[in-house]
Design a protein around this nucleic acid. Sequence first.
DNA 1: AATTAAAACAACCGCTCCCCT
DNA 2: TAGGGGAGCGGTTGTTTTAAT
Length: 327
Amino acid sequence: MGRPPCCDKVGVKKGPWTPEEDIMLVSYIQEHGPGNWRAVPTNTGLLRCSKSCRLRWTNYLRPGIKRGNFTDHEEKMIIHLQALLGNRWAAIASYLPQRTDNDIKNYWNTHLKKKLKKLQTGPDGHSRDEFSTSQRPISKGQWERRLQTDIHMARQALCDALSVEKPCCSSEMKPSIDYYSYTKPAQASTYASSTENIARLLKGWMKNSPNRARKNPEATQHSFNNMAACTDSTCSEGTLSAANNTGCVDLSEAFESLFGFESFDSSNSDVSQSMSPEASIFQDESKPNISGQVPLSVLEKWLFDDGATLGKGDFTDISLDENDDLF
DNA sequence: AATTAAAACAACCGCTCCCCT
DNA sequence: TAGGGGAGCGGTTGTTTTAAT
């Protein structure tokens, strides 16, 4: 006997969420907090699968989500982290607390993949595939060890960077996954605060009809973000928060200060010119970079070469030098 | 102005992990 | 310790929007 589906297939609504459904979900979570998703459809009367509710909340309704264009340094962070972690979008998203894993994944698939492919092929359209043939084969154990080290190094570097602003890290960097979680119902009252927020929310929707919202999703999302900025209890507890105006530590900014990403201009993003032939590493970006550190070094070179100035050395050097020692 | 192709993004599906009994 | 169930994650699909012709 197989496992029953998480929800009845019949009578479950699919497709885009309506504002009404959003409100129902938000009000429920406001009252009870996220979690126990299975109970959400029953308790709210939403004809949605529990998974769908969770997804809608985490990807769209959750306070503090930043929508719209990715900044240059966000882009670089994603590329860098993807090289380090592979397609572990949730892990990557934990370093970009304002972005959802889905958002990052989509951005990677639609923008960055192409961008990197361009780099790989170069302006002449010919593949610059030298490393894939010249690379030493490495055993699974080796690359796993290497990956572990990379992750550790990245965490360490990030932790160091953050500790400048706020001594929040222990020896083990804790990704901001906690930002998602919301366990104690007691905190619920401070979450979306009150009917006041729902009213504001509605107001936002009135102003931005679905059509308009689609054209400018940021506008729609804003009402939620604002709501969150004022009331998100996690912020006052010192947890990472995206509420910019609350003075909480912003990981993106921390990364910025760490990497010194400043002058990378997407308009001059014809990075292929500065790319070495090793750019061929991107040929299989859907997997963790099994091919080892050489690809990573190229990536990093590109990431840090143009425009990055302060603080960049620490991260790259550690990553490159120490990992070379592994071999 | 109409049509088509490409891009962007929201949402779904199925698998895996982890916790609880 | 094993099995069941919920939650989370990553891949993929479907729909909408935008750009090009």
